[in-house]
């Protein structure tokens, strides 16, 4: 993150530069697939099926490791046994990083809201940018979430301090 250390981003860069940076970032999202349960199959359908074909949105779903990923999609039931692994792999991702929580289970526990072994929401462990409701959500919903995320990435640092905070890895609050 040379940009951050040199203080370039904290000096409020020129708007066209920020715009170009954001524009490049939003169409080359490397997505780490965290397929856990039913939603993983719908995520697979969104990625691999020619009917949905997510790669046309500029999402590249094959990073070899979380260290190369910008975006992680938590799709499925998060159990208490799984939480340490999720935390560890999230921490390995480089900043700026984004999280999509796919499906009711990852959002809030879903149909297992009273189960003894299920974590009620992945946002208890890692910060989440976009929640997709549904059990499981349709692949189109995941596509929509990615488009929403791209819109947000485009807006970062234009008139707010969000971009610099993202690159420093600080938590960001979006109203």
């Amino acid at each position: 993150m040379g940009l951050v250390e040199k203080g370039v981003l904290s000096r409020k860069p020129l708007k066209p530069v920020t715009w170009l940076l954001n524009y490049s970032r939003k169409y080359s999202l490397w997505m780490f697939q965290w397929g856990l349960a039913c939603c993983a199959i719908e995520m697979g359908a969104a990625l691999a099926s020619p009917r949905f074909d997510m790669m046309r949105l500029g999402v590249i779903p094959f990073p070899a490791s979380p260290r190369q990923a910008d975006l992680v999609v938590i799709s499925g039931t998060v159990t208490d046994k799984m939480v340490p692994a999720i935390k560890r792999l999230y921490e390995q991702m480089p900043d700026p990083k984004y999280v999509i929580s796919m499906g009711s289970c990852a959002n809030c526990g879903g149909p297992y809201w009273d189960s003894y072994s299920v974590t009620k929401g992945v946002d208890q462990v890692i910060p989440v940018d976009i929640y997709i409701p549904g059990c499981p959500p349709r692949p189109e919903a995941l596509l929509d979430a990615v488009v929403m995320l791209q819109e947000r990435i485009q807006q970062e640092g234009l008139g707010n301090d969000e971009l610099a905070a993202r690159w420093r890895g600080e938590p960001v609050e979006v109203v």
Partner: peptide, 30 residues
């Protein structure tokens, strides 16, 4: 194993019969 253990057998004790159908859909999700 156990990373996807959701406690089905316990959960069925707290659901009515029609509700359990919703739950057991998701055992083998394919």
């Amino acid at each position: 194993i156990g990373y996807m253990h959701r406690g089905y057998e316990k959960l069925t004790e707290f659901r009515t019969y029609p509700q359990i159908t919703t739950l057991i859909n998701r055992i083998d999700w394919l």
